[in-house]
Nucleic acid binder design. Structure first.
Lengths: 210, 210
DNA sequence: TTCTACATACGTTCATGTATGTATGTAAAT
DNA sequence: ATTTACATACATACATGAACGTATGTAGAA
């Protein structure tokens, strides 16, 4: 075999990423060799080393391909104006959960990230990605909660930071456990309901203090 | 070096487990060789292979040593009678969070389990441990919520299973994020407060439905 | 003396990275 | 329109090293 046209090369690259997703999900990141991925993609290691520097680079590209799409959605939702800023958070988290349920590629990536990879060494970049993403979500949520309290939708005494942390860990916990065993509970129905429960708790003035 | 007395041998075994905890935390489970652990413990691989079959067996023993202690606490708390069964859940989750904050060994094990190991192959036993532990917690919580609703502490319309799942994922989410970056928020103050918020939300009749 | 609790030594496997081969696409020169 | 020259997109081959499991050695306890 020899040189392909540019679009054929891009197909090869995507085939490698597709294969990586599946093999990583099956055997975990550290236990899968590049040879396995190559075989699953129908190429040799040569192709992988052509497109990617090493396994970490391949992993990064894989996550970029899937999680990169989330940015637009965020911008889109932020563009809409909400009288009650909490509605933005509701939409955001619901959209995220829906994505996890309906997009198998998104599900795979989350399962790999949470349960099939170690946040260590060169793979720690995924940790940073998570942290960065979490911090952005936290910042948005905190601001929304602050505004909501200011506008009287939530108690004035509300600790916006704490409320934001609670929402984030709740969503994370939902996805974490569902990717661990999706028969444990129905995410599509329980997820939103549980989030609503938490948000309702924020409205109870007596409970938000320690 | 040569043969030690039985208690010396047990010291060696514990030294190996101690070393494993630290090295696993630093480099992740799959990337640490038994040679590294041996070096950190001040022994050779021979000692490790004497006490344990392989890395997975060592890992199991390590988790057993730390998580095994939780059983008694659970029994102790369950023995106490509570007028409001939700108090049991409160105590249980608060105790767990407190443990995470104050017991560095517990923290280490959780960080390793969540972020420094892949739930795959022979290491999947830790996944089963998590699932089993989660299911027990779920069962206890569900029963407690059911009782609480029955006794009028919570709305009759409460979905006990859903409430239990929410509590579990909330606690998991808290620990998960805090082990990921403990500067993100103060677990000792935020944790209980966030749980209280959720529990308060359960008491709001309008919010428990989808 | 025998068994224990290791240390040491050995052989094998396996993944990695690189070096090299090679056929084709592409652009420029003729 | 060919031909030439070079870059591209891989496949193949090779060298290295690391980790593993086991086999064997050994000094002290029982």
């Amino acid at each position: 075999m020899a040189r392909k046209t540019k679009e054929e090369a891009l197909e090869t690259r995507n085939a490698i990423l597709d294969a990586a997703e599946i093999v990583f999900q099956e055997h975990g990141v550290s236990r899968t060799s590049l040879a396995e991925i190559a075989a699953a993609a129908g190429v040799t290691r040569g192709a992988i080393y052509w497109h990617f520097a090493d396994k970490a680079d391949l992993f990064d590209a894989m996550t970029q391909r899937v999680f990169g799409l989330m940015e637009e959605k965020l911008a889109e939702l932020q563009a809409d104006s909400h009288e009650n800023p909490v509605d933005l958070l509701r939409k955001l988290s619901f959209h995220f959960l829906e994505r996890v349920v309906n997009d198998p590629r998104y599900f795979r990536l989350l399962e790999i990230s949470w349960h099939k990879c170690e946040y260590v060494g060169e793979m720690a970049t995924i940790r940073d990605t998570h942290l960065e993403c979490g911090n952005r979500y936290l910042a948005i949520s905190e601001e929304a909660f602050r505004l909501a309290a200011e506008r009287g939708f939530l108690p004035e005494t509300l600790d916006a930071r704490q409320a934001a942390v609670g929402l984030m860990v709740l969503v994370d916990g939902l996805v974490l456990n569902w990717t661990l065993d999706h028969t444990l509970f129905p995410l599509d129905s329980f997820g939103p309901a549980i989030i609503e429960t938490y948000l309702a708790g924020l409205a109870v003035p007596a409970a938000k203090g320690a």
